[in-house]
Design a protein around this nucleic acid. Sequence first.
DNA 1: CGTCAGTTTGACACGAATCAAAGTGAGTGG
DNA 2: CCACTCACTTTGATTCGTGTCAAACTGACG
Lengths: 207, 207
Amino acid sequence: MVDKGEAILVEGSHNAHLYTMLSGLAFRFKIIEDGRRQILNYILPVDLIGLQGSLTGEMQHSIETLKPSVLCVFERNRIDEIFVKHPKLAYDITWLAAREERMLDEHLLSIGRRTALERTAYVLSFLASRSIEAGMDQTDEVSLPVTQQHLADTLGLSIVHTNKTLKKLSDRELIKWGERSCTINDVEALARIANWQVGQTEDRPFI
Amino acid sequence: MVDKGEAILVEGSHNAHLYTMLSGLAFRFKIIEDGRRQILNYILPVDLIGLQGSLTGEMQHSIETLKPSVLCVFERNRIDEIFVKHPKLAYDITWLAAREERMLDEHLLSIGRRTALERTAYVLSFLASRSIEAGMDQTDEVSLPVTQQHLADTLGLSIVHTNKTLKKLSDRELIKWGERSCTINDVEALARIANWQVGQTEDRPFI
DNA sequence: CGTCAGTTTGACACGAATCAAAGTGAGTGG
DNA sequence: CCACTCACTTTGATTCGTGTCAAACTGACG
């Protein structure tokens, strides 16, 4: 169990295990020395954390929680064992790595080639569909416990411009901002603005 | 064997196998309907191609060659077999997936938070060190057979601005542009501009 | 009541996109 | 062999999107 706002893995650390996020919410990020931060992806139940660190020996990014989170630990030195004794599990781990890669590809497309409005719409619909998929919100409304600074660092925008872009979306009533959190009203309209095909949920391993 | 400039895998296609790039050079990219293109990463010897497609059933990006390339095919339906019978090989595949993820993380940081000059310096030093690592250039000079449009689509910049940024770097004699290709003179100076730590080459599986 | 983190807004500056046009060299066909 | 085309590069002028600066506002919390 890890509290909200806590760093659970720090760039450069060596004691990397493999974790599964059982409940909660976190994000992976990198920072440049002068403080610029880029959020790489969000971690929802039931995602894998620390795969790279486990396989390469050193974390290349940091992780911080947005909600109190519960993790399940796989010992690093048991990973070889998994590959030898549990091929199905090993396959699932690789499947999840490939899935992470697809998400990063889409983020790259977003930051590289979409406008601020498209990008913002994309991230919000992306996070909303992942939340729904993970069953995080029982209600109809999807609500994300992030600050505008988090979104800015996800989008590669300044916080001021992020704010103005969010205003455009809430003027259209696609989202509502309140109390350090964002509720998404219309996932599909957002995806349409972003020119994004929300991927159909496939069979996905639950490690 | 695939010729230069040819598409070898197309987004949405289903016949995805797993390939190894034995020699040559290619790149992965995604496009938005209106034509905007984002290059996601480059594929050098001895990289794996099509992992996601093989595991998830459908390619989410396309691949095109920059040089005549030789590929080695793994049948898709033999992947399960690999995980069961060759755990070491399965581990290596996962290792490579984790490595790809690290590269994408760094690109994301770059496009999201670095300036045009830093970004350009980063990609060039990144590609140069990968070329050296892959032993693609026997000579001291590293030379990349790309157009400025390729770089622009990698960097998330317009082609005009890319040109002007490249000029700054060649004024400093860090690179030289000529004949649809770029030769990199000073990898480390570029990395320094980008504020980038070029990762030490670790043991890396050669599948 | 004051502080503090986060949000909101307006004015202005700057980096990058767009527009336009000319230059280069390889390849092609007359 | 020359003219022509075509893809790519280069450069300057201008526009536009986004960043930066500054200041006020809000609500939680001590």
